[in-house]
């Protein structure tokens, strides 16, 4: 089974239809909706979105790459995000990130070859009391340590292999 979702143009159209045609102010909202369904932003989706909103495809791409929240390559099934906010930083977040990079053998922003994990970082999610914080598939895991994270990733990897 391929872990990359197949490009479904009908799905893209139906997402776009939820936003007013020609309204450039919906651009970022549209990108979010597309990514929520496709897990990343493929070229075809951006082209169709540009057409729908009445902006150039180059602008669409330029705007999308301006933001940290958008991804242009297929992402892994699991997304592990390390919060790099200040509160997390002073409590040791860089060490979490390094640990995850070692364990997954990818750099921050990358995806493992088997498309199982994507490792990302975020500049604060406003849960500073929980720091240092890892977010695994949307769930906040507070007071993380490199050792705890390592165990968690191992478990997820085992589960994924099955």
């Amino acid at each position: 089974m391929s872990r990359t979702p197949k490009l479904d143009k009908k799905l893209i159209s139906s997402i776009l239809q939820q936003h007013k045609a020609g309204d450039a102010s919906a651009l970022v909202n549209v990108l979010h909706d597309l990514q929520a369904h496709l897990r990343y932003l493929p070229q075809e989706a951006l082209e169709m979105a540009a057409d729908h909103l009445g902006v150039s495809y180059a602008q669409m791409y330029g705007v999308a790459t301006f933001y940290e929240g958008f991804h242009f390559k297929p992402r892994g099934e699991h997304v592990v995000t390390i919060c790099m906010g200040t509160a997390c930083h002073v409590r040791g977040a860089p060490r979490l990130l390094e640990q995850a990079e070692r364990d997954l053998n990818v750099e921050s922003g990358g995806t493992t070859k088997d498309l199982m994990f994507s490792l990302e970082q975020v500049n604060c999610v406003g849960a500073c009391a929980l720091g240092p914080l890892a977010i695994v598939d949307g769930t906040y895991k507070g007071s993380m340590t490199p050792a705890k994270l390592s165990n968690l990733l191992k478990k997820m990897h085992k589960k994924g292999k099955k």
Partner: peptide, 25 residues
């Protein structure tokens, strides 16, 4: 023409084409 665009931001800002592919525009 809208062929070229600014890609990324900050220290990763670049000039280029969408997805680094030749542009029809």
């Amino acid at each position: 023409h809208h062929a070229l665009t600014t890609v990324g931001r900050g220290d990763k800002k670049r000039i280029g084409l969408p997805f680094n592919k030749p542009s029809d525009n």
